[in-house]
Every structure is written in C-alpha cells, then in structure tokens.
Nucleic acid binder design. Structure first.
Lengths: 138, 138
DNA sequence: CGCTAATGAGGCGTAAATAT
DNA sequence: ATATTTACGCCTCATTAGCG
C-alpha cells in the first residue's frame, strides 16, 4: 500500500512524490567515512556540519549513517565463520566467485582471515584481509 | 510490475518499439576504445561525457561498454598479468581493497594467478582463481 | 556468413521509504 | 534507532537481429 508522501526539503519547501535517488560520490564518501570512523552515530549538529561540507541534504546524511551502521553490523555477521563456511559450502558461488574446495591452501604463511595472491611476478602479489574482501564482495 | 518503457531515440522521437540498430563509426570507436582502455566500466557521469562527445545516445554508449566487456571476457582465456598489475599498481585501492605490497605471499603452494584463503577451520579454506577475482572486482 | 548492436530476464547493491 | 521492504541503477548472460 504505497502512499505518496510529502517530502520536506532542506530549504523548507515541500514537494509531492519520492525524493530522487541521491548519488553519493567518492568525495562525499571519503568525508562521511572519515566522520563515521570517529563517530558512527552523529548528532544533529554534526550532521548539519557534514551536510554543509558535502552539499548533501541533511536527511541524506542521516540515512547514510543509518545504512552504514546497518551494513557494518551485517558485515560482522558475515565474518562469522559459519556464515563464511555456508557461503563456501558445496562450491557454491559468491558474487560469481566459485569456490574450489579441492584446492585448499596448505601453507602456513597466510594468516587467519587473510587472502594471499601469488602471481607470476612480484608486483602482482597481493595480500588483503578477509574483511576487506567481504567489504568488496558484499 | 513491469511497465513498457518509452524509448527516446537519437533524433528525439519516441516510441515503444525497438531501437533501430546504431552504426558506430570509426571515429566513435576510437573514442570509446580509448575510454575503455583506462576504464572498462565507466560510471554514469563518464558515459554522459562520452555521449556528448560522440553524439551517441547514453544508452547506446552503455550497451557498447557492456558488449565490449562481454567480448573481452569471451576472448580472454588466461589471465592478463598486465591488467592485474595495472590494478594493483602503486598500492592503489580497488573497490576499497588496499594492496599491501609489504606483505607478499612467500609460500609456494599457491599457484600463479590464484588466491588462497586460510581460515581458522578447514571448512573455511578457500581457493579461487585470479580471473574469478577480477571478474568479481571489475 | 561473422560481427556486434540491441533486447530481456534475472541478480546484486544500496538509497529511500516504511514499519516496529 | 533499528529492522524490513521497496525502487532504482547497473551489471551479466543468453539471445535476437541488423549491417557490411
């Protein structure tokens, strides 16, 4: 049962219909993420500052923090080995990444929760944490 | 609930029918391929720029990139190390994944072009190919 | 013919909207 | 504030169809 809601914009004017989807670019993201690190649930005043800084609507900023908190929580659940194990189960794919259980890593140089890549050339080598991968894959 | 969308053609006319096949000439191709080299999956803003630059409809540009990626993938059998190297170059981040060149994998059990994950428990272990990761990250 | 522009189904991520 | 749902944009994949 969808109801057309009245949306109050920053300038005080009101408009019918939904707020158009905002695209948060990399620059905005940097500012927001930075703020999030030190204060994941900022009060109105801080949000106002962020809003002015980025040019984003205060409501947009608020929703972003809400979603970011939700995502972080979701992510923590994902890191739970049970979830991870479930994703890998039976060689099912995760975001197109197929798991090959027959070829498990047997070395000890790779720490827990880490991914290592060994390419043909040294500059191709890579070491990232599982959390980062999940962030990327999520 | 799908709704038949109105398609706006290049000449400005609109119709619910099919879009006539666009002929992408050599000049367009050069621009697009050039852009593709540095960024195979451009965002809306870039596509808009390309669209304005060539005179092609934004949708046409988007489809071209989609088809181009599909073609590249179709043709690519083995991993192109240059592509990988370019992505990791200078420790830049890709999709939020930071590359730590200081922590290269030194074991030999991980084959070329492969990623290994070693978790706390055996069932958490994972082995995926670089191609799959690239596909996922692309 | 081969090549490729275009389509449609289906999935994913996430901003926005709504419910609790 | 959190939890859930909805809507949108973009992607892939398989197919279809138009042009040289």
């Amino acid at each position: 049962m969808n109801v057309l809601s009245i949306v109050y914009f920053q300038d005080g004017s009101e408009s019918g219909g939904k707020r158009p989807r905002t695209t948060i670019n990399a620059e905005h993201l940097e500012t927001l993420k930075d703020a999030y690190k030190t204060w994941p649930a900022p009060k109105r005043q801080v949000r106002r500052q962020l809003s002015a800084e980025t040019g984003l609507d205060m409501r947009v900023v608020q929703v972003w923090f809400q979603n970011c908190r939700a995502k972080e929580k979701r992510l923590k659940k994902n890191v739970d080995r049970h979830h991870w194990g479930r994703l890998c189960k039976d060689g099912r794919s995760l975001c197109g990444v197929k798991v090959d259980k027959e070829r498990l890593a047997e070395d000890d140089s790779v720490g827990d929760g880490e991914l290592s890549f060994k390419g043909e050339h040294p500059e191709d080598h890579l070491h990232i944490s599982l959390t980062e991968v999940l962030l990327c894959l999520s």
